[in-house]
Design a protein around this nucleic acid. Sequence first.
DNA 1: ACGCTCTTGTGCACCGGTTCACATGGCACT
DNA 2: AGTGCCATGTGAACCGGTGCACAAGAGCGT
Lengths: 223, 223
Amino acid sequence: MSEVGTIESIPDATVARLPVYLRGLLELADTGVEMVSSVSLAELAGVNAANVRKDLSYLHAHGTRGVGYEVGHLLAEIRVVLGGSRSSPVVIVGVGNLGRALSRYDGFLAGGFPIAGLVDADPMVVGRKVAGTVVRPVGELADVVAQTEATVGIVATPANAAQEAVDRLVQAGIRSILNFAPAVVAVPNFVDIRQVDLATELQILGYHQHRRTGDSDTSLVSG
Amino acid sequence: MSEVGTIESIPDATVARLPVYLRGLLELADTGVEMVSSVSLAELAGVNAANVRKDLSYLHAHGTRGVGYEVGHLLAEIRVVLGGSRSSPVVIVGVGNLGRALSRYDGFLAGGFPIAGLVDADPMVVGRKVAGTVVRPVGELADVVAQTEATVGIVATPANAAQEAVDRLVQAGIRSILNFAPAVVAVPNFVDIRQVDLATELQILGYHQHRRTGDSDTSLVSG
DNA sequence: ACGCTCTTGTGCACCGGTTCACATGGCACT
DNA sequence: AGTGCCATGTGAACCGGTGCACAAGAGCGT
Protein backbone atom coordinates (compact mmCIF):
# COMPACT_ATOMS: atom_id res chain seq x y z
CA MET A 1 0.00 0.00 0.00
CA SER A 2 1.83 3.02 1.31
CA GLU A 3 5.50 2.74 0.49
CA VAL A 4 7.14 5.63 2.22
CA GLY A 5 8.89 3.97 5.06
CA THR A 6 11.07 6.93 5.92
CA ILE A 7 9.36 7.48 9.21
CA GLU A 8 8.01 4.57 11.17
CA SER A 9 4.83 3.36 9.55
CA ILE A 10 1.80 2.29 11.49
CA PRO A 11 -0.21 -0.68 10.15
CA ASP A 12 -3.39 0.28 8.34
CA ALA A 13 -5.52 -1.81 10.65
CA THR A 14 -4.12 0.06 13.63
CA VAL A 15 -4.68 3.45 12.05
CA ALA A 16 -8.30 2.52 11.44
CA ARG A 17 -8.75 1.84 15.14
CA LEU A 18 -7.06 4.97 16.43
CA PRO A 19 -10.11 7.19 15.91
CA VAL A 20 -12.16 4.74 17.92
CA TYR A 21 -9.67 4.83 20.76
CA LEU A 22 -9.69 8.60 20.51
CA ARG A 23 -13.44 8.70 20.98
CA GLY A 24 -13.27 6.39 23.95
CA LEU A 25 -10.49 8.40 25.55
CA LEU A 26 -12.40 11.64 25.09
CA GLU A 27 -15.30 10.08 26.90
CA LEU A 28 -13.02 9.02 29.74
CA ALA A 29 -11.41 12.43 29.94
CA ASP A 30 -14.84 14.03 30.13
CA THR A 31 -15.73 11.92 33.11
CA GLY A 32 -12.47 12.79 34.81
CA VAL A 33 -10.76 9.44 34.46
CA GLU A 34 -6.99 9.86 34.35
CA MET A 35 -5.65 6.36 33.90
CA VAL A 36 -6.95 3.58 31.70
CA SER A 37 -5.93 -0.04 31.27
CA SER A 38 -5.73 -1.78 27.93
CA VAL A 39 -8.59 -3.98 29.06
CA SER A 40 -11.03 -1.15 29.68
CA LEU A 41 -9.98 0.72 26.57
CA ALA A 42 -10.45 -2.47 24.61
CA GLU A 43 -13.93 -2.86 25.99
CA LEU A 44 -14.72 0.73 25.11
CA ALA A 45 -13.49 0.24 21.57
CA GLY A 46 -14.91 -3.22 21.07
CA VAL A 47 -11.60 -4.93 20.35
CA ASN A 48 -9.17 -7.33 21.97
CA ALA A 49 -6.98 -6.00 24.80
CA ALA A 50 -3.75 -7.39 23.38
CA ASN A 51 -4.64 -5.68 20.16
CA VAL A 52 -4.95 -2.38 21.97
CA ARG A 53 -1.56 -2.79 23.59
CA LYS A 54 0.08 -3.67 20.32
CA ASP A 55 -1.61 -0.74 18.60
CA LEU A 56 -0.45 1.69 21.24
CA SER A 57 3.06 0.32 21.13
CA TYR A 58 3.31 1.60 17.55
CA LEU A 59 2.72 5.13 18.80
CA HIS A 60 5.53 4.94 21.34
CA ALA A 61 2.78 5.69 23.80
CA HIS A 62 4.23 4.01 26.84
CA GLY A 63 2.02 2.88 29.62
CA THR A 64 3.05 2.08 33.13
CA ARG A 65 3.20 -1.57 34.03
CA GLY A 66 0.83 -2.51 36.74
CA VAL A 67 -1.10 0.72 36.28
CA GLY A 68 -2.14 1.47 32.73
CA TYR A 69 -2.01 4.39 30.34
CA GLU A 70 -2.40 8.06 31.12
CA VAL A 71 -5.57 9.23 29.39
CA GLY A 72 -4.38 12.75 28.61
CA HIS A 73 -1.10 11.53 27.27
CA LEU A 74 -2.71 8.95 25.04
CA LEU A 75 -5.15 11.52 23.73
CA ALA A 76 -2.37 13.87 22.75
CA GLU A 77 -0.32 11.08 21.26
CA ILE A 78 -3.13 9.79 19.07
CA ARG A 79 -4.08 13.27 17.98
CA VAL A 80 -0.55 13.91 16.82
CA VAL A 81 -0.48 10.74 14.78
CA LEU A 82 -3.86 11.47 13.21
CA GLY A 83 -2.86 14.62 11.43
CA GLY A 84 -1.05 16.60 14.05
CA SER A 85 -4.17 18.15 15.55
CA ARG A 86 -3.93 20.55 12.66
CA SER A 87 -7.25 21.49 11.10
CA SER A 88 -7.81 20.09 7.59
CA PRO A 89 -10.44 22.05 5.67
CA VAL A 90 -12.69 19.96 3.48
CA VAL A 91 -14.29 20.74 0.15
CA ILE A 92 -17.38 18.82 -0.90
CA VAL A 93 -18.15 18.13 -4.56
CA GLY A 94 -21.82 17.50 -5.12
CA VAL A 95 -24.41 19.18 -2.95
CA GLY A 96 -27.34 16.83 -3.32
CA ASN A 97 -29.11 15.13 -0.43
CA LEU A 98 -26.00 13.48 0.83
CA GLY A 99 -23.71 16.43 0.24
CA ARG A 100 -26.02 18.70 2.21
CA ALA A 101 -26.22 16.26 5.09
CA LEU A 102 -22.46 15.89 5.16
CA SER A 103 -21.92 19.63 5.08
CA ARG A 104 -24.05 19.93 8.21
CA TYR A 105 -22.54 16.97 9.99
CA ASP A 106 -21.12 18.14 13.30
CA GLY A 107 -18.75 15.23 13.65
CA PHE A 108 -16.51 16.54 10.91
CA LEU A 109 -15.90 19.89 12.49
CA ALA A 110 -15.38 18.33 15.89
CA GLY A 111 -12.80 16.01 14.40
CA GLY A 112 -10.82 18.88 12.92
CA PHE A 113 -12.33 18.76 9.46
CA PRO A 114 -14.34 21.95 8.91
CA ILE A 115 -16.36 22.08 5.73
CA ALA A 116 -14.76 25.01 3.97
CA GLY A 117 -16.12 24.80 0.45
CA LEU A 118 -19.02 23.40 -1.56
CA VAL A 119 -19.21 23.01 -5.30
CA ASP A 120 -21.83 21.55 -7.61
CA ALA A 121 -22.37 21.12 -11.32
CA ASP A 122 -26.06 21.99 -11.21
CA PRO A 123 -26.73 25.71 -11.89
CA MET A 124 -29.89 25.42 -9.79
CA VAL A 125 -27.82 24.57 -6.76
CA VAL A 126 -24.93 26.94 -7.36
CA GLY A 127 -25.29 30.18 -5.44
CA ARG A 128 -27.43 28.73 -2.72
CA LYS A 129 -26.24 28.88 0.82
CA VAL A 130 -25.90 25.53 2.54
CA ALA A 131 -24.76 25.24 6.15
CA GLY A 132 -23.43 28.76 6.01
CA THR A 133 -21.42 28.27 2.84
CA VAL A 134 -22.32 29.42 -0.65
CA VAL A 135 -22.24 26.68 -3.27
CA ARG A 136 -19.91 27.52 -6.11
CA PRO A 137 -19.73 26.08 -9.63
CA VAL A 138 -17.61 22.99 -10.04
CA GLY A 139 -15.54 24.81 -12.63
CA GLU A 140 -14.19 27.04 -9.90
CA LEU A 141 -13.08 24.11 -7.78
CA ALA A 142 -9.40 24.98 -8.06
CA ASP A 143 -10.13 28.50 -6.81
CA VAL A 144 -12.20 27.20 -3.93
CA VAL A 145 -9.46 24.81 -2.92
CA ALA A 146 -6.87 27.55 -3.07
CA GLN A 147 -8.95 30.07 -1.14
CA THR A 148 -10.05 27.70 1.58
CA GLU A 149 -6.69 25.91 1.70
CA ALA A 150 -8.65 22.70 1.63
CA THR A 151 -6.60 19.53 1.81
CA VAL A 152 -9.37 16.96 1.74
CA GLY A 153 -12.08 16.39 -0.84
CA ILE A 154 -15.41 14.64 -0.42
CA VAL A 155 -17.19 13.36 -3.49
CA ALA A 156 -20.96 13.18 -3.08
CA THR A 157 -22.00 13.24 -6.70
CA PRO A 158 -24.02 10.67 -8.64
CA ALA A 159 -21.98 7.67 -9.74
CA ASN A 160 -21.57 8.85 -13.31
CA ALA A 161 -19.98 12.13 -12.25
CA ALA A 162 -17.63 10.64 -9.68
CA GLN A 163 -14.61 10.07 -11.88
CA GLU A 164 -14.73 13.60 -13.20
CA ALA A 165 -15.13 15.01 -9.71
CA VAL A 166 -12.14 13.05 -8.50
CA ASP A 167 -10.07 14.13 -11.47
CA ARG A 168 -10.89 17.76 -10.76
CA LEU A 169 -9.98 17.40 -7.11
CA VAL A 170 -6.65 15.84 -7.97
CA GLN A 171 -6.07 18.54 -10.56
CA ALA A 172 -6.73 21.14 -7.87
CA GLY A 173 -4.05 19.62 -5.70
CA ILE A 174 -6.16 17.54 -3.33
CA ARG A 175 -4.40 14.37 -2.21
CA SER A 176 -6.95 12.91 0.21
CA ILE A 177 -10.39 11.97 -1.06
CA LEU A 178 -13.43 10.40 0.51
CA ASN A 179 -15.76 9.03 -2.14
CA PHE A 180 -19.44 8.46 -1.38
CA ALA A 181 -20.43 7.90 -4.99
CA PRO A 182 -21.19 4.25 -5.75
CA ALA A 183 -18.49 3.93 -8.36
CA VAL A 184 -14.95 2.65 -8.60
CA VAL A 185 -12.72 5.54 -9.56
CA ALA A 186 -9.11 5.58 -10.66
CA VAL A 187 -6.58 7.91 -9.05
CA PRO A 188 -2.84 8.45 -9.39
CA ASN A 189 -0.93 6.48 -6.80
CA PHE A 190 0.06 9.59 -4.87
CA VAL A 191 -3.59 10.20 -4.04
CA ASP A 192 -5.23 8.53 -1.09
CA ILE A 193 -8.86 7.62 -1.67
CA ARG A 194 -11.35 5.88 0.56
CA GLN A 195 -14.67 4.51 -0.55
CA VAL A 196 -17.82 4.74 1.54
CA ASP A 197 -20.56 2.85 -0.17
CA LEU A 198 -23.91 3.00 1.55
CA ALA A 199 -25.86 0.69 -0.70
CA THR A 200 -23.05 -1.84 -0.60
CA GLU A 201 -23.20 -1.93 3.17
CA LEU A 202 -26.86 -2.82 3.06
CA GLN A 203 -26.25 -5.48 0.47
CA ILE A 204 -23.63 -7.06 2.69
CA LEU A 205 -26.15 -7.11 5.51
CA GLY A 206 -28.60 -8.61 3.05
CA TYR A 207 -26.30 -11.50 2.38
CA HIS A 208 -26.07 -12.48 6.01
CA GLN A 209 -29.79 -12.02 6.50
CA HIS A 210 -30.58 -14.15 3.51
CA ARG A 211 -28.18 -16.74 4.79
CA ARG A 212 -29.82 -16.75 8.19
CA THR A 213 -33.40 -16.94 7.06
CA GLY A 214 -32.69 -19.13 4.06
CA ASP A 215 -31.29 -21.61 6.52
CA SER A 216 -34.27 -23.65 7.66
CA ASP A 217 -32.43 -24.71 10.79
CA THR A 218 -32.04 -22.18 13.60
CA SER A 219 -30.61 -24.36 16.33
CA LEU A 220 -27.19 -22.83 16.30
CA VAL A 221 -26.66 -19.73 18.45
CA SER A 222 -23.27 -21.01 19.64
CA GLY A 223 -22.87 -18.71 22.60
CA MET B 1 -17.28 -14.10 12.77
CA SER B 2 -20.25 -15.89 11.33
CA GLU B 3 -20.42 -19.41 12.61
CA VAL B 4 -23.28 -21.03 10.78
CA GLY B 5 -21.57 -23.29 8.35
CA THR B 6 -24.65 -25.32 7.52
CA ILE B 7 -24.76 -24.09 3.98
CA GLU B 8 -21.61 -23.25 2.12
CA SER B 9 -20.24 -20.02 3.46
CA ILE B 10 -18.71 -17.32 1.33
CA PRO B 11 -15.70 -15.47 2.74
CA ASP B 12 -16.50 -12.02 4.12
CA ALA B 13 -14.01 -10.36 1.82
CA THR B 14 -15.75 -11.92 -1.17
CA VAL B 15 -19.20 -10.88 0.00
CA ALA B 16 -17.96 -7.32 0.33
CA ARG B 17 -16.91 -7.34 -3.30
CA LEU B 18 -20.07 -8.88 -4.72
CA PRO B 19 -22.01 -5.58 -4.72
CA VAL B 20 -19.18 -4.01 -6.68
CA TYR B 21 -19.29 -6.77 -9.24
CA LEU B 22 -23.04 -6.37 -9.37
CA ARG B 23 -22.71 -2.70 -10.23
CA GLY B 24 -20.17 -3.41 -12.92
CA LEU B 25 -22.31 -6.13 -14.41
CA LEU B 26 -25.38 -3.91 -14.46
CA GLU B 27 -23.37 -1.37 -16.39
CA LEU B 28 -22.30 -4.02 -18.88
CA ALA B 29 -25.84 -5.34 -19.23
CA ASP B 30 -27.06 -1.82 -19.92
CA THR B 31 -24.63 -1.44 -22.77
CA GLY B 32 -25.67 -4.77 -24.23
CA VAL B 33 -22.55 -6.74 -23.37
CA GLU B 34 -23.34 -10.42 -22.95
CA MET B 35 -20.04 -12.00 -22.02
CA VAL B 36 -17.34 -10.74 -19.70
CA SER B 37 -13.91 -12.04 -18.83
CA SER B 38 -12.50 -12.04 -15.34
CA VAL B 39 -9.92 -9.52 -16.50
CA SER B 40 -12.42 -6.90 -17.62
CA LEU B 41 -14.66 -7.45 -14.64
CA ALA B 42 -11.62 -7.07 -12.42
CA GLU B 43 -10.76 -3.80 -14.09
CA LEU B 44 -14.31 -2.60 -13.65
CA ALA B 45 -14.26 -3.49 -9.97
CA GLY B 46 -10.74 -2.33 -9.29
CA VAL B 47 -9.44 -5.69 -8.09
CA ASN B 48 -7.17 -8.49 -9.22
CA ALA B 49 -8.46 -10.84 -11.93
CA ALA B 50 -7.53 -14.00 -10.07
CA ASN B 51 -9.41 -12.62 -7.14
CA VAL B 52 -12.50 -12.20 -9.28
CA ARG B 53 -12.29 -15.76 -10.52
CA LYS B 54 -11.86 -17.12 -7.03
CA ASP B 55 -14.75 -15.01 -5.78
CA LEU B 56 -17.05 -16.22 -8.53
CA SER B 57 -16.05 -19.81 -7.91
CA TYR B 58 -17.66 -19.56 -4.48
CA LEU B 59 -21.00 -18.79 -6.12
CA HIS B 60 -20.85 -21.85 -8.34
CA ALA B 61 -21.12 -19.33 -11.12
CA HIS B 62 -19.36 -21.26 -13.83
CA GLY B 63 -17.76 -19.46 -16.70
CA THR B 64 -16.76 -20.93 -20.01
CA ARG B 65 -13.05 -21.49 -20.50
CA GLY B 66 -11.62 -19.50 -23.32
CA VAL B 67 -14.70 -17.27 -23.40
CA GLY B 68 -15.66 -15.79 -20.04
CA TYR B 69 -18.78 -15.42 -17.95
CA GLU B 70 -22.30 -14.77 -19.12
CA VAL B 71 -23.30 -11.35 -17.82
CA GLY B 72 -26.97 -12.12 -17.30
CA HIS B 73 -26.21 -15.34 -15.54
CA LEU B 74 -23.69 -13.75 -13.22
CA LEU B 75 -26.10 -10.96 -12.41
CA ALA B 76 -28.81 -13.40 -11.40
CA GLU B 77 -26.37 -15.52 -9.45
CA ILE B 78 -25.00 -12.62 -7.42
CA ARG B 79 -28.46 -11.24 -6.79
CA VAL B 80 -29.55 -14.55 -5.35
CA VAL B 81 -26.60 -14.68 -3.01
CA LEU B 82 -27.12 -11.12 -1.85
CA GLY B 83 -30.49 -11.64 -0.34
CA GLY B 84 -32.42 -13.52 -2.94
CA SER B 85 -33.45 -10.42 -4.90
CA ARG B 86 -36.15 -10.16 -2.28
CA SER B 87 -36.91 -6.62 -1.17
CA SER B 88 -35.82 -5.80 2.38
CA PRO B 89 -37.68 -2.82 3.81
CA VAL B 90 -35.59 -0.55 5.98
CA VAL B 91 -36.53 1.45 9.05
CA ILE B 92 -34.41 4.45 10.00
CA VAL B 93 -34.00 5.52 13.61
CA GLY B 94 -33.02 9.17 13.88
CA VAL B 95 -34.24 11.64 11.31
CA GLY B 96 -31.65 14.38 11.63
CA ASN B 97 -29.51 15.66 8.80
CA LEU B 98 -28.07 12.30 8.02
CA GLY B 99 -31.28 10.37 8.52
CA ARG B 100 -33.11 12.65 6.11
CA ALA B 101 -30.40 12.33 3.49
CA LEU B 102 -30.41 8.56 3.83
CA SER B 103 -34.17 8.38 3.56
CA ARG B 104 -33.96 10.18 0.23
CA TYR B 105 -31.03 8.23 -1.09
CA ASP B 106 -32.01 6.56 -4.36
CA GLY B 107 -29.33 3.91 -4.16
CA PHE B 108 -31.10 2.12 -1.36
CA LEU B 109 -34.34 1.65 -3.22
CA ALA B 110 -32.53 0.64 -6.38
CA GLY B 111 -30.62 -1.98 -4.41
CA GLY B 112 -33.79 -3.52 -3.05
CA PHE B 113 -33.86 -1.65 0.24
CA PRO B 114 -36.88 0.67 0.24
CA ILE B 115 -37.12 3.04 3.19
CA ALA B 116 -40.34 1.91 4.77
CA GLY B 117 -40.34 3.62 8.14
CA LEU B 118 -38.84 6.56 10.00
CA VAL B 119 -38.78 7.11 13.73
CA ASP B 120 -37.28 9.80 15.92
CA ALA B 121 -37.17 10.72 19.58
CA ASP B 122 -37.64 14.44 19.02
CA PRO B 123 -41.33 15.49 19.23
CA MET B 124 -40.52 18.38 16.90
CA VAL B 125 -39.60 15.94 14.17
CA VAL B 126 -42.30 13.36 14.80
CA GLY B 127 -45.28 13.80 12.52
CA ARG B 128 -43.35 15.50 9.77
CA LYS B 129 -43.30 13.94 6.36
CA VAL B 130 -39.84 13.12 5.05
CA ALA B 131 -39.32 11.58 1.63
CA GLY B 132 -42.97 10.60 1.52
CA THR B 133 -43.00 8.92 4.90
CA VAL B 134 -44.37 10.30 8.15
CA VAL B 135 -41.92 10.24 11.03
CA ARG B 136 -43.25 8.30 13.98
CA PRO B 137 -42.19 8.35 17.62
CA VAL B 138 -39.38 6.02 18.57
CA GLY B 139 -41.63 4.41 21.14
CA GLU B 140 -43.73 2.98 18.32
CA LEU B 141 -40.74 1.40 16.66
CA ALA B 142 -42.01 -2.13 17.18
CA ASP B 143 -45.29 -1.20 15.50
CA VAL B 144 -43.51 0.42 12.61
CA VAL B 145 -41.32 -2.62 12.12
CA ALA B 146 -44.33 -4.91 12.21
CA GLN B 147 -46.43 -2.82 9.85
CA THR B 148 -43.70 -2.25 7.30
CA GLU B 149 -42.26 -5.74 7.68
CA ALA B 150 -38.89 -4.10 7.92
CA THR B 151 -35.94 -6.45 8.28
CA VAL B 152 -33.13 -3.93 8.34
CA GLY B 153 -32.53 -1.03 10.69
CA ILE B 154 -30.43 2.06 10.13
CA VAL B 155 -29.26 4.03 13.15
CA ALA B 156 -28.66 7.69 12.39
CA THR B 157 -28.96 9.12 15.89
CA PRO B 158 -26.39 11.08 17.87
CA ALA B 159 -23.74 8.91 19.48
CA ASN B 160 -25.28 8.99 22.93
CA ALA B 161 -28.59 7.60 21.68
CA ALA B 162 -27.11 4.87 19.52
CA GLN B 163 -27.06 2.06 22.05
CA GLU B 164 -30.68 2.64 22.97
CA ALA B 165 -31.70 2.82 19.33
CA VAL B 166 -29.95 -0.46 18.63
CA ASP B 167 -31.53 -2.09 21.66
CA ARG B 168 -34.95 -1.04 20.50
CA LEU B 169 -34.35 -2.35 17.01
CA VAL B 170 -33.22 -5.70 18.34
CA GLN B 171 -36.21 -5.76 20.65
CA ALA B 172 -38.44 -5.15 17.66
CA GLY B 173 -37.02 -8.15 15.91
CA ILE B 174 -34.52 -6.51 13.59
CA ARG B 175 -31.45 -8.66 13.00
CA SER B 176 -29.50 -6.53 10.51
CA ILE B 177 -28.34 -3.08 11.54
CA LEU B 178 -26.33 -0.39 9.85
CA ASN B 179 -24.99 2.08 12.39
CA PHE B 180 -23.98 5.58 11.36
CA ALA B 181 -23.67 6.89 14.89
CA PRO B 182 -20.06 7.38 15.95
CA ALA B 183 -20.25 4.95 18.83
CA VAL B 184 -19.37 1.36 19.53
CA VAL B 185 -22.54 -0.49 20.39
CA ALA B 186 -23.08 -3.94 21.83
CA VAL B 187 -25.47 -6.39 20.24
CA PRO B 188 -26.42 -10.00 20.88
CA ASN B 189 -24.41 -12.34 18.69
CA PHE B 190 -27.41 -13.24 16.56
CA VAL B 191 -27.56 -9.66 15.33
CA ASP B 192 -25.46 -8.50 12.43
CA ILE B 193 -24.26 -4.94 12.75
CA ARG B 194 -22.07 -2.86 10.48
CA GLN B 195 -20.49 0.40 11.39
CA VAL B 196 -20.19 3.33 8.99
CA ASP B 197 -18.19 6.04 10.64
CA LEU B 198 -17.85 9.20 8.61
CA ALA B 199 -15.56 11.17 10.89
CA THR B 200 -13.33 8.14 11.33
CA GLU B 201 -12.87 7.88 7.60
CA LEU B 202 -11.62 11.43 7.45
CA GLN B 203 -9.30 10.85 10.34
CA ILE B 204 -7.77 7.89 8.57
CA LEU B 205 -7.20 10.07 5.55
CA GLY B 206 -5.73 12.64 7.90
CA TYR B 207 -3.15 10.17 9.11
CA HIS B 208 -1.84 9.49 5.63
CA GLN B 209 -1.88 13.15 4.75
CA HIS B 210 0.02 14.07 7.86
CA ARG B 211 2.47 11.33 7.09
CA ARG B 212 2.97 12.57 3.56
CA THR B 213 3.43 16.23 4.35
CA GLY B 214 5.26 15.62 7.60
CA ASP B 215 7.78 13.74 5.53
CA SER B 216 10.15 16.39 4.23
CA ASP B 217 11.31 14.09 1.46
CA THR B 218 9.05 13.60 -1.58
CA SER B 219 11.33 11.62 -3.88
CA LEU B 220 9.37 8.44 -3.76
CA VAL B 221 6.51 8.08 -6.29
CA SER B 222 7.43 4.42 -7.02
CA GLY B 223 5.39 4.00 -10.20
C1' DA C 1 -9.78 -33.96 -37.12
C1' DC C 2 -6.11 -31.37 -35.29
C1' DG C 3 -3.89 -27.86 -33.07
C1' DC C 4 -3.82 -23.04 -31.56
C1' DT C 5 -5.44 -19.58 -28.67
C1' DC C 6 -7.73 -17.79 -25.03
C1' DT C 7 -9.71 -17.87 -20.43
C1' DT C 8 -11.17 -20.38 -16.55
C1' DG C 9 -10.22 -22.69 -12.19
C1' DT C 10 -7.01 -23.52 -8.42
C1' DG C 11 -2.72 -25.13 -5.71
C1' DC C 12 0.56 -22.79 -3.24
C1' DA C 13 3.35 -19.41 -1.23
C1' DC C 14 3.23 -15.06 0.86
C1' DC C 15 1.60 -11.32 3.87
C1' DG C 16 -0.80 -8.57 7.22
C1' DG C 17 -3.37 -8.93 11.17
C1' DT C 18 -5.08 -11.11 15.43
C1' DT C 19 -4.75 -13.46 19.64
C1' DC C 20 -2.70 -16.23 23.14
C1' DA C 21 0.41 -16.68 26.64
C1' DC C 22 4.12 -15.32 29.25
C1' DA C 23 8.04 -12.82 30.76
C1' DT C 24 9.10 -8.12 32.39
C1' DG C 25 8.85 -4.65 35.53
C1' DG C 26 6.54 -0.86 38.32
C1' DC C 27 3.66 0.21 42.45
C1' DA C 28 1.72 -0.30 46.95
C1' DC C 29 1.46 -2.15 51.28
C1' DT C 30 3.61 -4.04 55.21
C1' DA D 1 13.54 -3.23 52.11
C1' DG D 2 10.88 -7.07 50.78
C1' DT D 3 6.95 -9.27 48.73
C1' DG D 4 2.92 -9.82 46.13
C1' DC D 5 -0.07 -8.06 42.67
C1' DC D 6 -1.18 -6.32 38.44
C1' DA D 7 -0.89 -4.53 33.81
C1' DT D 8 2.28 -3.77 30.11
C1' DG D 9 4.94 -5.30 26.17
C1' DT D 10 5.97 -8.84 22.83
C1' DG D 11 7.35 -13.55 20.75
C1' DA D 12 5.15 -16.82 18.19
C1' DA D 13 1.42 -19.49 16.33
C1' DC D 14 -2.61 -19.03 13.76
C1' DC D 15 -5.90 -17.42 10.33
C1' DG D 16 -8.00 -15.24 6.42
C1' DG D 17 -7.00 -13.17 2.24
C1' DT D 18 -4.31 -12.16 -1.99
C1' DG D 19 -1.98 -13.00 -6.14
C1' DC D 20 1.12 -15.67 -8.93
C1' DA D 21 1.58 -19.14 -12.04
C1' DC D 22 0.10 -23.03 -14.30
C1' DA D 23 -2.71 -26.89 -15.66
C1' DA D 24 -7.27 -27.96 -17.67
C1' DG D 25 -10.40 -27.31 -21.13
C1' DA D 26 -13.61 -24.93 -24.52
C1' DG D 27 -14.07 -22.86 -29.02
C1' DC D 28 -12.43 -21.72 -33.64
C1' DG D 29 -10.06 -21.83 -37.82
C1' DT D 30 -7.82 -24.56 -41.10
